[in-house]
């Protein structure tokens, strides 16, 4: 790892100020991606601004159907939240499938959404739940937020403080994990709520998370696994790597969508 300077912030304002005072500074949340990347010398931030001690970025609140998850909330906390389980168990299920228990004790929803890894789990939930990404300066709707692999609408120094959404009527998530890394080889989050049916796919798209509109149309007509089977998934925009061909991923999109619908009930 290259040398770096560590700073610990205790408030959102302090974090943003510390971050903006150095050109090459980065926010550090759980660090489950960033520290690993730094160890490989694939990232070399001059300064790190630790967010783990910013109290206002932690915790889950559920008021009626309105959900707010602080950006600093860990995967383990989301996975085990009974308040969240009562209105949207699918997101708890998703969080419980990220990495391993030790990674889930450190990694956070804000870190995952800010990083927007094309094979991360959370981006699919944020997109399918039509969630809002709340930052230190504005609110960004999910459809505007994700802009490609590791690319988001976040400006330089902008800090995610929370993810909010309206709990859906039904939702489900299924993923085919890469057996070694546990990242999604393909993961599909389905949701049926006030904004209609939304289906988001992670791990498969060559441009990051995306909405599977054909499956959305099929499920809007009839919410059943059988209707997913009739949809043709185009392999044209899907990823090709050593783990799977685009055609294999196209099939996985359908299989995972069917399982996600079955889980949603």
């Amino acid at each position: 790892m290259y040398d770096t300077n560590y700073h610990r912030a205790s408030s959102v304002e302090e974090a943003v100020k510390l971050r903006s005072s150095q050109d090459e500074a980065r926010y550090l949340s759980g660090g489950m991606t960033l520290i690993a990347t730094m160890k490989q010398r694939l990232a070399a931030p001059s300064d790190l601004v630790d967010l783990r001690h910013v109290a206002s970025m932690k915790g889950i609140s559920v008021e009626g159907r309105k959900v707010r998850i602080g950006a600093g909330t860990t995967h383990a906390e989301v996975a085990s939240s009974s308040a969240l389980k009562s209105v949207c168990p699918a997101i708890c299920h998703l969080a419980g499938m990220i990495g391993d228990p030790h990674v889930r004790h450190m990694g956070t929803i804000g870190g995952s959404v800010a990083n927007n890894d094309p094979a991360a789990d959370y981006p699919s939930a944020v997109l399918a739940l039509n969630a809002t990404v709340v930052t230190d300066r504005r609110e960004i709707v999910a459809d505007d937020y994700f802009q490609g692999m590791f690319d988001t609408a976040l400006e330089e120094g902008e800090l995610i403080t929370a993810i909010t959404f309206e709990a859906p009527e039904k939702a489900g998530y299924a993923k085919f994990p890469n057996p070694a890394s546990r990242y999604a080889l393909t993961g599909v989050f389905v949701a049926k709520g006030a904004s209609g049916v939304r289906v988001a796919v992670t791990g498969a798209g060559s441009n990051g998370v995306f909405r599977a509109t054909d499956i959305e149309i099929a499920l809007s007509a009839s919410w059943s696994s059988d209707f997913v089977a009739s949809v043709a998934v185009d392999a044209g925009q899907l990823m090709e790597d050593m783990h799977a061909t685009p055609e294999y991923r196209a099939n996985l999109v359908k299989v995972m969508a069917k399982r996600a619908v079955a889980m949603a009930g």
Binding site: Y6, I35, A36, K39, D50, R52, A76, H102, M106
Partner: peptide, 27 residues
């Protein structure tokens, strides 16, 4: 492994299991 995979470095921090190869001492 030094790459967050193997878990040989697991310790408890504030009561929770973590991989100490993926956390800075200053954290």
């Amino acid at each position: 492994c030094d790459t967050t995979q193997c878990g040989a470095c697991v310790v408890h921090m504030d009561g929770k299991s973590v991989k100490s190869c993926s956390i800075l001492a200053v954290q």
